[in-house]
Design a protein around this nucleic acid. Structure first.
Lengths: 147, 147
DNA sequence: TCAATTTACATGCATTTGCATTGACTATCA
DNA sequence: TGATAGTCAATGCAAATGCATGTAAATTGA
């Protein structure tokens, strides 16, 4: 119930502004190059990594930090576009297994130069390696879920 | 056109995850208390700060890092709810001046304990003052707009 | 073993967003 | 001063999102 110090509030604001600014750069880069949004890349990356074994939607959900219905519909769109396949799941008839298609793999590969360049522009060019280590270390502390 | 180092990519991911996690905490806190989303608070805060002089929508846009149509409709909703007023603008007949209403001021005040507590929980409890200073310093570097 | 609960995923409906465009006014400058 | 360009804001339409709920299968446990 306690209120934050000024420093805490300023830190919160810094975090939001830095994130929003960087994200804007990245999403704009992808769009200008005619690519789908960042979320598609995230899905394709996970599926590409796991390979033919595939992933269940709920696993994707955990990896992507999206709500259940968000993942469900994101998958629908990507499937409709032909970049992933839903396959029946032997172990659990409620769900399915998602695998990336060849076209999906190609899309991901072609997105990376653009996405990577945007990350480099938004983050790489602005920080020294030391600052990056520092930032990662401190940001990691924000993820701890203890009360 | 150059690609990011692993460290740059990891930093980018840290930033996104930390932000998303913290934002989730904050928005959830507000919703659970029956309050409107964070964006409403931001608008009301700016209008409360400026006082009777009010703000033009395009000034709000600059402060809030939202697209023009986003601000336009956000304002509509908040006005409809009675928390701000659009007044005619003497200097420029295209626009209007936005001022907070009494109810708006009261809403902002009643939101702060909840919003503040969420910020404290998401940021204040997780970092030392030194870490906050560090974080602010490094995040600020991400805002520079030089190529 | 079978009723109750939980888990996995989908979806209808309302709200919100994104994009492109429009309407209205202001500024520029020949 | 009058055409041209630029700025401020709203909006129609399509797409995405949030929320609540639905369906079906798996798990639990009496």
């Amino acid at each position: 119930m306690s209120l934050p110090s000024d420093s805490t509030v300023e830190t919160w604001i810094s975090l939001v502004r830095a994130h929003d600014t960087a994200l804007l750069t990245v999403e704009r880069g992808l769009k200008e190059a005619g690519f789908p949004p960042l979320a598609w890349y995230d899905v394709l990356l996970e599926l590409d990594r796991i390979g033919p074994a595939g992933l269940r939607p709920f696993e994707l959900q955990a990896a992507l930090l999206l709500p259940q219905y968000g993942v469900s519909r994101l998958i629908d769109r990507i499937e409709k576009a032909g970049y992933l396949q839903k396959q029946i799941c032997m172990e659990d008839a409620r769900g399915h297994v998602l695998t990336i298609t060849d076209t999906g793999r190609k899309l991901r590969q072609s997105m990376w130069p653009v996405y990577g360049a945007a990350i480099e522009q938004a983050v790489g060019e602005k920080l020294t390696p030391g600052e990056m280590r520092l930032l990662q270390r401190v940001l990691a502390k924000l993820l701890s879920s203890d009360t």
